[in-house]
Computed example of a mutant assay.
Amino acid sequence: MIRYSNPSLKLENARQNSGKVAWRSPSNIALVKYWGKYGLQLPRNPSVSLTLSASYTETTLAFLPRQQASKARFDKKISLEFYFEDQPAPAFEAKIEKFLESLLPIFPFLADLHLEIFSHNSFPHSAGIASSASSMAALALCLCSMEEVLFGTTLTQDDFYQKASFLARLGSGSAARSIHGRAVIWGKTSKQWETSEEWGVPFEALHPIFEDYQDTILLIHEGEKSVSSRAGHALMNQNPFSAIRYEQAHKHAVLMLEALQSGDLEKFIDITEKEAFVLHALMMVSEPSFVLMKPNTLRAIEAIQFFRQQTQIPICFTLDAGPNVHILYPKSYQERVLPFIKSELAPLAHHSKYILDQVSEGSIALD
């Protein structure tokens, strides 16, 4: 159960304390995709992801009593200033304010504070690299840390991360998977692994080959997506293939977990690439339909599959809800794969940009 703040602690502590907390949370790449939701940010099907390392958001949350803040907004439930890359970001601030208002039943003390949030990305936002996942995960962890600073309460590490994952999910579904490292499951599966729709659960039975798995992200397009993930999820409610998709995703989740446990790269590649194609096919048959892939996305996919066929190297691709291509391969093949990426794939990227990334241990608190 998620532990709520004690309302009796609310006023006295929040009115007298100030401080600052900071977290770094990585993005994640879903292998089995979450597409379609119900209720309060709950997934229609389970998803399985790998947590990344170099693609992350750093968030600093400064807080002080409203009465002591020169810019406190007493006409609103939440008094907030939000900065992205050190610049005011009104559109993001409005979203964060709405999110924090929704958390007042859990964190009633938020109404007595003035908050300053500073957020930085190591990668382009809104381009299909799950920036909302890393940003909401970092913010959720900051909120949990702030609660401990204000009230001196402590949770076990497992309970702390579970609560943060629960909160992050309320802001962005895929953020539930960015709290933990390595491989994460979110959503119920038909197998007896520990899973939940409320929060992400780390997959502890991960085969060693996946612990440092490489993900080179080819930045085909760095601009904002033409259709947001939130809008795309909503279109699944009328998608004629949604029921078939949810059934398929449940099967794929079980098969993927088996592959991650056994180290079966052939099964891993097969499911990973099918899931990428299915995600974008669902977009194309939505009403209205939309296409997030670019011509160079398809060229990169063809090149990766041809390279795998010619060399027998277990390299594969996946896509998030955007045009950029995630190139997945074991670290032991890095010396053979990187020259291929530089010579054949980088020219397909915008300004030849790509991010060298790999599986990480997850979120970390910052001094």
Rank of each mutant, 00 (worst) to 15 (best):
S228T: 10
D75Q: 14
L298P: 00
H125Q: 09
E275P: 04
R15I: 03
S25H: 02
Q238W: 12
E116S: 10
N28D: 07
Q157C: 13
A140P: 09
H180Y: 06
E224P: 13
R66D: 10
S332F: 09
R230F: 09
L292R: 02
E12D: 14
L366M: 07
A91M: 15
A133N: 09
L9G: 06
H326Y: 03
P323E: 00
K163L: 11
F107G: 04
L348F: 02
K37A: 06
L219H: 13
T60P: 01
H180K: 03
A243W: 07
N121I: 14
K163D: 05
E198S: 11
I29H: 12
F340L: 05
L103C: 05
S25I: 01
W193N: 07
N121E: 12
K71Y: 10
S145F: 08
S165K: 04
D357I: 08
S262E: 15
Q87C: 09
L150Y: 05
V325W: 11
D158R: 12
A127C: 06
D75H: 11
L282T: 08
L167Q: 03
G128P: 01
L139I: 15
L150H: 04
P90C: 12
P46N: 15
N17I: 02
V201P: 06
L9N: 13
L255F: 10
P7R: 09
L80S: 00
S25V: 08
G152A: 04
Q67G: 00
S122F: 03
V359L: 06
A300P: 06
A321R: 03
D112T: 04
A253Q: 07
E344W: 00
E204L: 15
L143R: 03
G232E: 12
I271C: 01
S102T: 05
E335R: 12
F210H: 02
Y333Q: 11
E97P: 01
D75E: 11
A176K: 01
S174R: 02
T154H: 09
K77F: 09
L61Q: 06
H207Q: 06
S134W: 02
H326V: 00
R73H: 08
A281E: 12
T216E: 10
L328P: 10
A133V: 08
M283Y: 14
